[in-house]
Design a protein around this nucleic acid. Structure first.
Length: 271
DNA sequence: CCGACAACCTGACGGC
DNA sequence: TGCCGTCAGGTTGTCG
């Protein structure tokens, strides 16, 4: 379930395997994920040395000493397998390092993709160019969020899923953050007070950081042979808990907004 | 500008 | 046991 925390955990897990390493094998196993894998990916990545790894929203980035950055997006079902004993179905990219480590990018649904471009061109990358502030760090502020939502009548739930408003939130953490902030998901985004937006910003940070912390504890598994990576097993307060008891005692509701399930507690979350 | 919806693709799960 | 419908973390595009 790769939203921002899972991608962050993934990048942190990949870093000790890849950073400073020469890639002795970079082998696409099929040409088509959601987008076509760049035809020159192998040629440009194989033999290069990884000089850094990073994350923007839900995108992972691997920089090389050739001035390239490989971008990976995990879609709905993507994950990196570390030192796999055998190849599985849906292992779409293989990487081997000079130190003898192996990685396999596995993505059954193929909603994810790989891309490759000069590092200098990253700011102009279409997915990044219009992207909103990162929720961790100082870029996301209540004042900035208020400006972005000003005059918008769409439900706050839909606005928070829009990567141009805040980068990296997905269905799970939007539900969780709105619950933590006590805001009903159907509330018109432009009509939320600055006080409550400030609470929302803090809730977004808190829920993402808690998820990253919990994911970090699975990094032990990451290092194990065939380890799973980046799957966050936190107990959500509302997501996936329709009809269960909220902490307040009331039942968690589920409704569909913009084609996606919203979980929320009408007692805790005001309109 | 907005919401609803479909599309992409596979796997897991519940009901019968 | 097996078949069928439903649903799932994301993104992108169309239509009204």
């Amino acid at each position: 379930m790769p939203e921002l925390p899972e991608v962050e955990t993934t990048v942190r897990g990949l870093t000790p395997v890849l950073h400073g390493q020469r890639l002795t094998l970079v082998e696409p196993r099929r040409a088509d994920l959601r987008k076509a894998i760049p035809v020159d990916l192998r040629q440009r990545m194989q033999g290069a040395v990884v000089t850094g790894l990073g994350r923007r929203a839900k995108y992972g980035m691997i920089d090389t000493d050739r001035g390239d950055t490989m971008i990976f997006h995990l879609g709905m079902s993507g994950r990196w397998r570390v030192d796999p004993a055998d190849l599985l179905a849906h292992d779409h990219l293989l990487i081997e390092t000079a130190a003898g480590r192996r990685l396999a990018l596995n993505d059954p649904r193929r909603f994810g993709f790989l891309d490759l471009l000069p590092t200098a061109d990253l700011p102009a990358y279409p997915a990044f160019a219009a992207m909103g502030p990162e929720p961790l760090g100082d870029d996301l502020t209540a004042a900035g969020l208020m400006r972005a939502l000003e005059g918008r009548s769409a439900p706050i739930k839909a606005m928070l899923l829009d990567q141009r408003i805040v980068a990296g939130l997905g269905n799970i953490y939007v539900c969780e953050a709105l619950h933590m902030a006590g805001i009903a998901p159907s509330r018109a985004a432009g009509q939320i007070s600055s006080t409550r937006l400030a609470r929302l910003v803090e809730a977004i940070r808190a829920v993402l950081m808690a998820a990253i912390d919990a994911g970090g504890s699975t990094l032990r598994d990451f290092a194990a042979p065939d380890g799973e990576l980046g799957y966050f097993s936190k107990q959500f307060l509302v997501y996936g808990r329709e009809d269960e008891a909220c902490a307040c005692g009331g039942p968690v509701h589920r409704q569909t907004q913009a084609g996606r399930s919203t979980f929320w507690c009408p007692r805790c979350q005001r309109t």
